[in-house]
C-alpha cells in the first residue's frame, strides 16, 4: 500500500477559502440558502465552510444541516457490508430554499442520487447545487457533476481518495491511496 499527498493542510485551507468565496458569489447573503453536509464524511467539510463563512466572511444566520442517505441507497442487500445509519439533522424547512449539498469526495455519483431522493422527503427545494472537495472524474456511474469543486483527481478504480480533517483525523490533508 502506498499513499501520495494530493493536498496538504495549507492547500486544503486555500481551497476552502476559494470554495467559500465561490459560494458567496452565487448566494451573497445566504438568506434563502441552506448548506447540507452529507453523512458521514461530508459533515466536516460542511461545518468548516459554514464556520469560515460566518467568521471570516461575516455571513449571518447560516442554516447548516446533516443528511444521512443510508435508507435511500441503491445497494441495500447488494453489498457485503451492512449499511449502518447515521444521524440526520435538518432543523429548517427545505421548501423553496436554495440547497447546497456538500460532500468530501464525488466518485460514482450514487450517493448524490440517493441524497437528491432523500432531500425530497423534506420538501421541494428551489434549486439544489453540489459542492465537493475532491471530484474523481472519469469514474461516474450517473450523469451528476459538481457545481463547486475543490480539486479534480484522476484516480483509477482500485485507488482510494482519503480526506482527513483536523477535528476528526488529527490533520487536514487529502491522500491518494494505492492498494
Amino acid at each position: 500500500m502506498s499513499q501520495k499527498v494530493l493536498l496538504n493542510s495549507t492547500e486544503v485551507n486555500i481551497t476552502l477559502h476559494r470554495l467559500a468565496c465561490q459560494l458567496l458569489e452565487n448566494h451573497t447573503s445566504f438568506h434563502n440558502t441552506v448548506l447540507i453536509g452529507m453523512q458521514p464524511r461530508g459533515i466536516f467539510l460542511a461545518r468548516r465552510l459554514a464556520t469560515m463563512l460566518e467568521d471570516v466572511y461575516k455571513v449571518n444566520n447560516l442554516h447548516l444541516g446533516h443528511l444521512d442517505i443510508t435508507f435511500y441507497r441503491d445497494d441495500f442487500r447488494r453489498s457485503d457490508k451492512p449499511l449502518a445509519a447515521n444521524q440526520t439533522e435538518i432543523n429548517f424547512i427545505v421548501e423553496d430554499k436554495r440547497v447546497v449539498l456538500i460532500d468530501d469526495v464525488l466518485f460514482t455519483g450514487r450517493s448524490i442520487r440517493a441524497a437528491l431522493t432523500a432531500l425530497q422527503s423534506y420538501g421541494r427545494p428551489e434549486s439544489v447545487e453540489l459542492l465537493t472537495l475532491i471530484d474523481r472524474r472519469f469514474s461516474r456511474h450517473l450523469p451528476i457533476q459538481p457545481d463547486y469543486r475543490g480539486r479534480q483527481v484522476d484516480a483509477i478504480n482500485n485507488e482510494k481518495v482519503k480526506v482527513c480533517w483536523l477535528e476528526n483525523d488529527g490533520e487536514d490533508a487529502v491522500y491518494l491511496i494505492n492498494n
Partner: peptide
C-alpha cells in the same frame, strides 16, 4: 440506534424511505 434514525424519518413531512 436504528430506531433513533427511523424516529426522525417518521417525523418528516414525507414519512417514507425506499429501502425495502
Amino acid at each position: 440506534e436504528t430506531a433513533d434514525q427511523f424516529k426522525e424519518v417518521i417525523n418528516r413531512p414525507i414519512k417514507k424511505v425506499p429501502s425495502l
